[in-house]
């Protein structure tokens, strides 16, 4: 097993989870509370990566980030390097790829906050942002934790998108799942078994953590039942 590839995967997953949290908080808030009639279209777009073949997503991102695209050219002019086949490119791709895994637990958590508490906060003079920070966020800690764990675990396991956008550059874009693919291609069965088992254990650990947190409901349930 390549520790370099593993380290890169961890770095990619942590960066992605952190950026995703920043993007997903406002997006999930909007999805949870907006009354816009076309909201379902936005929800469908956010959920796309769940069903879309990763290669399709990777292919579009490859085009979008390539030097022939507007975005890719701007990036190259500003930073002087190519976005495709770079770690930064991988981060952008992973953010898209894991978006639903951050947004969905968050909007579910926001929606489960007792609506009366949000109204109560408003009646007591709080602006929506204050209510979000003082009431909704503290009562959604489980959802935030779930979003972080799920987007982290999902990014660790990503393969197709990385292959399309990042290629296979050691230390830059060769993540642990790419490394496993390499080992199998090279008929290096011992190392492949070891990496696969490691990834299996890791995923199992994260999912156990998710279900454990989900089971520990308690204090965050709001409102007295008289």
């Amino acid at each position: 097993m390549s520790w370099e590839a593993f380290g890169l995967s961890i770095k990619l997953a942590s960066t992605t989870s952190f950026i995703l949290l920043l993007i997903a908080l406002p997006l999930a808030y909007w999805i949870a509370y907006s009354k816009w009639r076309w909201k379902f279209l936005v929800e469908a777009v956010v959920a796309l990566p769940i069903v879309l073949p990763p290669t399709v997503l990777g292919f579009y991102l490859l085009i979008a980030m390539g030097t022939r695209s507007f975005f890719g050219r701007i990036y190259q002019e500003v930073f002087g390097s190519n976005l495709v086949f770079s770690f930064e490119g991988l981060v952008i791709a992973s953010v898209f790829y894991s978006l639903p895994f951050a947004v969905q637990p968050l909007s579910a958590a926001f929606l489960s906050v007792d609506k009366r508490l949000i109204q109560l906060s408003a009646v007591l003079g709080a602006a929506p942002l204050v209510t979000f920070i003082k009431v909704i966020l503290p009562l959604s800690t489980r959802g935030i934790l779930m979003a972080l764990i799920l987007s982290f675990a999902h990014t660790i396991g990503e393969f197709g998108v990385v292959l399309m956008v990042g290629g296979n550059i050691a230390g830059e874009t060769r993540t642990i799942s790419i490394d496993l693919y390499d080992q199998v291609q090279a008929m290096n069965d011992g190392a492949a078994l070891e990496t696969a088992l490691f990834l299996l254990m890791l995923s199992f650990f994260f999912l156990s953590l998710v279900y454990f947190i989900d089971r520990k409901k308690g204090r965050t349930i709001a409102g007295p039942k008289i």
């Binding site: 007792d114 009366r116 508490l117 109204q119 109560l120 906060s121 408003a122 009646v123 007591l124 003079g125 709080a126 602006a127 009431v135 503290p138 009562l139 204090r219 965050t220 349930i221 709001a222 409102g223 007295p224 039942k225 008289i226």
Partner: peptide, 18 residues
């Protein structure tokens, strides 16, 4: 609601649990 000088006590008196 936040700009009205009106206080409202909800039925069943919910409180911020945290």
């Amino acid at each position: 609601a936040r700009d009205r000088s009106i206080g409202l006590l909800f039925q069943d008196a919910p409180l911020f649990p945290h």
